[in-house]
């Protein structure tokens, strides 16, 4: 497979592959960002005094926190996208 990116030289299949790769890398980056934030937030909420192990009440708290963080993420995403749409109509 050729490694240079000279446009117009890529076949349709190569372009599709390239776009698919870019999309996958973006998805991985977003998952990493979410994981980082989720860990930071839920650690802060659930682990007050780090003990010798992650005990069951901490695990339960973290599990619940993860679900709520996803809920919050989705809600924020929807609220922001609604607002963007309203802003566009306003202009």
């Amino acid at each position: 497979m050729e490694s240079t990116l000279s446009s117009g030289q890529l076949s349709g299949v190569q372009k599709d592959e390239l776009m698919e790769q870019v999309k996958q890398q973006i998805a991985v980056a977003n998952a990493q960002e979410l994981l980082t934030k989720m860990t930071e937030k839920c650690f802060k909420k659930c682990i007050n005094k780090p003990g010798t192990s992650l005990d069951s009440s901490e695990q339960k708290c973290v599990a619940m926190c993860m679900d709520r963080y996803m809920d919050a993420w989705n809600l924020v995403s929807k609220a922001y996208s609604n607002r963007l749409q309203r802003e566009r109509h306003r202009v």
């Binding site: 919050a72 993420w73 924020v76 922001y80 996208s81």
Partner: peptide, 13 residues
């Protein structure tokens, strides 16, 4: 858009 949602979720959480 995604980047902003990550940041907003952080702040609003």
């Amino acid at each position: 858009f995604q980047f902003l949602v990550h940041g907003l979720t952080d702040t609003c959480w």
